[in-house]
Write a protein that binds this DNA or RNA. Structure first.
Lengths: 152, 152
DNA sequence: GAAGATTGACGATTCAATCTTC
DNA sequence: GAAGATTGAATCGTCAATCTTC
C-alpha cells in the first residue's frame, strides 16, 4: 500500500487544526515520512526494513528459527519469508539449515556477517529514533503516546 | 516498505505510556492498521488505494491529465503511473488519449465506469474516516491533530 | 540536450496452487 | 488430511536505460 494523499483545501490564511477530516491522512503522511527516513537509514548499511526486521528477530531468538516461526514473528505470509530469506541468503547474511527434528522444516541461521549487519542496522535505527524524539517536543511526545495507545 | 515490528518488552502489569522508545513504532503500527482498513474497504468496490488515488485526482482535475501530471500529484515516479494506468485501462476505468498539443504526451481520461468507481471508493473512504473519528475520542482527536501538525 | 512515456529489472508484499513430509 | 516450504502470478513501488518528440 501507500500514501493516499488527500487534497488539502487550505483556505488562504488558515494554518490551524488540520481539518478534522484530514487527521487520518496526516497520520498516514507522518508515518510515511518516518518510514522513508528509516528506509534511507537502513540503506546506508546495505539493509532494508524487511531485512533488518528478519535479522533482528533472529538475533533476538538467539538461535536458528524455522521459516514459519519467522513468518509468525513478522506477521506476514510464509511465502514472503521464503523470498526474503532467498535475498538474505544471497547476500550471505543468513544460511538455511535443515531442521534435524522435522524433515519438512528449514531453519534460518545467522551468519557472522548477518550478526554484524544487524548491529549496524540497530545503530541506524537508534539514530532515527533519536531524531524522531528530538522532532517532537516532550509534551507532544507524551500526547502522541497517549493518543496512539487509546486507538490501539 | 512495511511494518518494522519492534518487540514490546511489556513488563507484566505495565499498561501505561508506550515506552518512550516505542512511540515511533506505535505511530507506524497505527498507520499500518489504518492502511489495512482502507485497503480492505477499497477492495470491496474493486479498487486499491493506488487506483482510487489516481481516479480521485482525475475527478478532481475535471479533465484528462498527462501521466507526468499524475505522477507529480501522486508524488511518485513516472514509470509507476505508466503501469498503474495499464491496470486501470485494462479494467476500463480510464482511457489513454493522445495529447493534441504535444505528440510526446499521453493523457489519462476517465471513463464513465471510472467516474462511477471513484464515487464508490469515495463512499468507502468516508466510511473509514467516520470509523477512524469514532475510534478517537474528541479530545484525542484534537491532540493527535496538534501533534501531527507539530511534527510535519 | 531535456522532457514525456515506456520497458525491464528488482524489492516487498499478497494469494493460490503444489510438493514433501508429518 | 494438515503443516512446512516453495513456486508462480499479481500489485505497488523504486531505479536505470531507451525511444520519441520537443
Amino acid at each position: 500500500m501507500k500514501k493516499v494523499t488527500a487534497r488539502s483545501p487550505r483556505k488562504a490564511g488558515r494554518t490551524r487544526p488540520a481539518a478534522t477530516d484530514q487527521v487520518m491522512f496526516s497520520l498516514l503522511a507522518a508515518a510515511h515520512s518516518v518510514e522513508q527516513r528509516l528506509e534511507a537509514a537502513m540503506e546506508e548499511v546495505g539493509l532494508s526494513s524487511a531485512k533488518f526486521s528478519a535479522l533482528t528477530h533472529l538475533v533476538g531468538a538467539g538461535e536458528a528459527l524455522s521459516l514459519s516461526e519467522c513468518a509468525k514473528l513478522m506477521t506476514c505470509v510464509r511465502s514472503n519469508i521464503t523470498q526474503l530469506m532467498d535475498r538474505l541468503e544471497a547476500e550471505g547474511l543468513v544460511k538455511r539449515v535443515d531442521d534435524p527434528n522435522d524433515r519438512r522444516g528449514v531453519r534460518a541461521s545467522l551468519t557472522p556477517l548477518g550478526i554484524e549487519r544487524q548491529a549496524a542496522g540497530a545503530k541506524q535505527l537508534a539514530e532515527v529514533q533519536k531524531q524522531f524524539a528530538k522532532t517532537l517536543a516532550g509534551a507532544d511526545h507524551d500526547a502522541l503516546a497517549r493518543v496512539l495507545a487509546a486507538m490501539r
